[in-house]
């Protein structure tokens, strides 16, 4: 049998030039992308609002006043006006970041865990396992996502927990689809063949060779769904299927303020503006992440 000279190899163990890794390259490219950095900054502010909102608000977001209803933007003491019950809009918008972000991120996280697992298994196994998983997922695809979310929430009943569950189910199919397609692409690459040819089992191949190459793209795709999730959650709240009053949540605020659209259009549009800014920021952030992770040769 062949003998490998351990003596020379031991010498080599001493010092090896370590190349800057893949992630440091991603970080460098991302930090050069001004739009993505700006979007990241906005998201950071929103996260801070969500985490520390109760300590930052200028007024009590639940304190209503019949005398101060629907004040315009710029009113003394209410920089962003008041809503239909006279509550401070600025405080409610700040506190609203909490529930809106929660409703945006949590279903996507759950769906990422479920969808990525299913998709990677389907993509790597191929054959009938792939058929069973993907055809089942296709059934969910038959419904438009908004309708599916409304139907599931309606059937399960109103409430945050049920809204989260229905949104999770809505996002599993698209994430699973993406996971399946990137995994089956990787599976066709020669290095996976070579790993199989070296006698490795499927588990080791997925752990060492597949995950590192597919988790990034799946994660980036998932972050782009956070915006969709927020909008769907707002829609559910708007229909009375998600968050219940008097909790401040942007979708719900949009709903209750719609009656004031003719008297105070600017105040009534503010929750929508917040949803827009947040979803745009998440979209641009995931866009920036995607191009930073895209290694072109």
């Amino acid at each position: 049998m062949n003998t490998f000279s351990i003596a020379t190899a031991e010498k080599n163990v001493l010092a090896v030039e370590q190349s800057p890794g893949y992630w440091s390259g991603v970080f460098r490219r991302f930090s050069e992308d001004r739009i993505a950095l700006f979007a990241g900054f906005v998201v950071l502010i929103l996260v801070v609002l969500a985490l520390f909102g109760p300590w930052l608000v200028p007024a009590d977001p639940y304190q209503s006043s019949m005398l101060k209803r629907l004040k315009p933007i710029g009113t003394e003491g209410f920089p962003l006006g008041t809503d239909e019950l006279g509550r401070d809009m600025l405080s409610r918008l700040m506190i609203g970041a909490r529930l809106s972000l929660f409703m945006g991120i949590t279903p996507v996280l759950f769906a990422f865990a479920i969808g990525a697992t299913l998709g990677i298994i389907a993509g790597h196994a191929g054959g009938w396992i792939n058929s069973i998983i993907m055809r089942t997922i296709d059934v969910f695809y038959a419904f438009p996502s908004v309708l599916l979310a409304i139907a599931l929430s309606g059937a399960l009943g109103a409430g945050i927990g049920n809204a989260l569950l229905s949104l999770t189910l809505v996002f599993v199919p698209p994430i699973c689809r993406v996971a399946e397609s990137v995994t089956s692409q990787i599976r066709g690459r020669d290095f996976v063949e070579a790993a199989r040819a070296s006698g490795a089992n499927a588990f080791a191949i997925i752990r060492v060779h597949v995950l590192g190459n597919v988790l990034g793209p799946i994660f980036v795709y998932s972050t782009s769904l956070i915006a969709v999730s927020m909008i769907l959650a707002s829609g559910l709240s708007f229909l009375g299927l998600g968050v219940k009053p008097p909790e401040p949540e942007w979708g719900l605020m949009l709903n209750t303020l719609r009656t004031a659209i003719y008297t105070q259009p600017w105040v009534a549009a503010l929750p929508g503006l917040m949803i827009f800014i947040t979803s745009m920021s998440f979209n641009m952030l995931s866009d920036g992440l995607r191009s930073a992770m895209d290694v072109k040769q």
Partner: peptide, 20 residues
Amino acid sequence: YSSLNPRLTVETSIAFGPQM
């Protein structure tokens, strides 16, 4: 190019087989 995992260093790629 396709037969090396782009995320692994050269020595990790080579060492994978024996570890299996």
